[in-house]
Simulated scan of single mutants.
Amino acid sequence: MSDNSTSSSRSTPPAAAGVTGGYEGHSLTLKILIGFFAGLSIYNALELTALVFLTFSRYRGLYFWSLLISSLGLIPYALGFSFKFFRVLVGDAKWLSVTLLTIGWYPMITGQSLILWSRLHLIVSGEKGRKILLYTKWMIIIDAIILHIPTTVVTYGSNGDINTATFVEVYNIVEKIQMTGFFLQEVILSSIYIIETVRILRTSFQPNTRRLMHQLVCINVIIIIMDTGLLSMEYASLYLLETVTKGVCYSIKIKLEFAILSRLVKFVGGGQRGGEHVDRGQPIAFLGVKKTTQKTDSTDDNDVSDFLDMTRIATDVTHASPLPRRDLSSAYGDGLGLEFARFQHVESANWEDGGENGQGDGRSVDRKG
């Protein structure tokens, strides 16, 4: 009896608990925890999916698809580890559990990074911003190839019947490597948001800007903290607990990112077409008033809204005063002088009576004297 017990313990190393097969313990608390986390992950996934479809009027763009696919990936992931740990599917059917777990894991991990990357252009600009977007894009692509594929191979091998112990040993090494790689990837993306946000906070005095930037910093700090907790459980070889917790953590991270990045899109003031942001190549710095919808090729370097109360100014302080009408009339003739006077009249009406986005309501303001 003692020999059989020893032989069994040696054939299944402690590190393989949860890696091969399902949960074999008798802890009711752990079983409840597994079921609760699986249900919470699926609930968050369904809620996120509904929010995405209700928020976007046109279903296109990287932001939309990364949000949708990463949210839907939570469902097969949660079902996969539930079927696996509770031994719902046994025999050859066990491969369905592993496949569901793997199919959900791909979009859940890389999709979350794509969500952050798809909105990174809102806070970086210029040549530096272009390089950041390029390098981080290739970082996500390369990490997806070199970290997802080897982990998938050893995951299937660890649940097979050939050289199982060897695959489990390799799995414990590969799993730590891929967790560290994806951890560094998300820390880099979140750190870019934090660094650029702090830079904006130093240059902007608008209360709305500062409030949103503080929220953006806090959310990215929370993301790093959750990633650190998952990585700590992995290095502690708490595979089962790390697996069931990962789905909940990623669903919370996606919900936080969806909330703050959607606000960031509206706050930047770029055009909206069917819920998808139309990037105008403008940085977010010095935002505090609504931008006009008129397109321009120059950056908004003359925005003084951070230093002046724009509601108390009756003239356009960002442009030089026009020449008197009589000078134009005498120099170029009465026709040009009248045309310029009419242009000035319309411009004044738009400035005085402008509605949202700087558009006038059609009323004219007759300034005599």
Results as ranks from 00 to 15, higher is better:
residue 184 L to N: 02
residue 101 L to E: 13
residue 200 I to S: 05
residue 127 E to L: 09
residue 193 Y to L: 06
residue 134 L to E: 15
residue 197 T to W: 05
residue 87 R to W: 05
residue 151 T to I: 08
residue 131 K to Y: 03
residue 94 K to D: 02
residue 99 T to C: 07
residue 154 V to R: 01
residue 83 F to W: 06
residue 156 Y to D: 09
residue 128 K to W: 03
residue 98 V to W: 00
residue 132 I to A: 07
residue 128 K to N: 14
residue 120 L to N: 06
residue 200 I to W: 07
residue 118 S to K: 06
residue 142 I to A: 15
residue 158 S to K: 03
residue 187 V to R: 01
residue 107 P to L: 08
residue 109 I to Y: 12
residue 150 P to S: 05
residue 99 T to L: 14
residue 199 R to M: 10
residue 151 T to F: 14
residue 116 L to S: 13
residue 162 I to H: 14
residue 184 L to A: 13
residue 113 S to L: 10
residue 94 K to H: 04
residue 156 Y to C: 06
residue 125 S to Y: 13
residue 140 I to E: 07
residue 164 T to F: 05
residue 193 Y to F: 15
residue 168 V to T: 12
residue 86 F to R: 05
residue 112 Q to F: 14
residue 166 T to E: 15
residue 103 I to A: 14
residue 108 M to P: 07
residue 87 R to Y: 13
residue 158 S to I: 05
residue 83 F to V: 06
residue 196 E to V: 02
residue 172 N to A: 09
residue 111 G to R: 10
residue 90 V to F: 02
residue 162 I to T: 14
residue 183 F to I: 02
residue 151 T to P: 00
residue 90 V to K: 12
residue 199 R to E: 14
residue 108 M to E: 08
residue 100 L to N: 03
residue 184 L to W: 03
residue 152 T to W: 11
residue 142 I to S: 11
residue 91 G to Y: 08
residue 191 S to W: 04
residue 114 L to S: 09
residue 99 T to G: 08
residue 120 L to Y: 09
residue 111 G to L: 12
residue 177 I to K: 03
residue 118 S to N: 10
residue 92 D to F: 00
residue 104 G to M: 00
residue 93 A to R: 08
residue 87 R to K: 08
residue 176 K to V: 00
residue 143 D to H: 12
residue 82 S to W: 06
residue 151 T to L: 14
residue 133 L to I: 13
residue 107 P to R: 04
residue 102 T to R: 02
residue 141 I to Q: 09
residue 107 P to W: 06
residue 183 F to T: 12
residue 164 T to P: 02
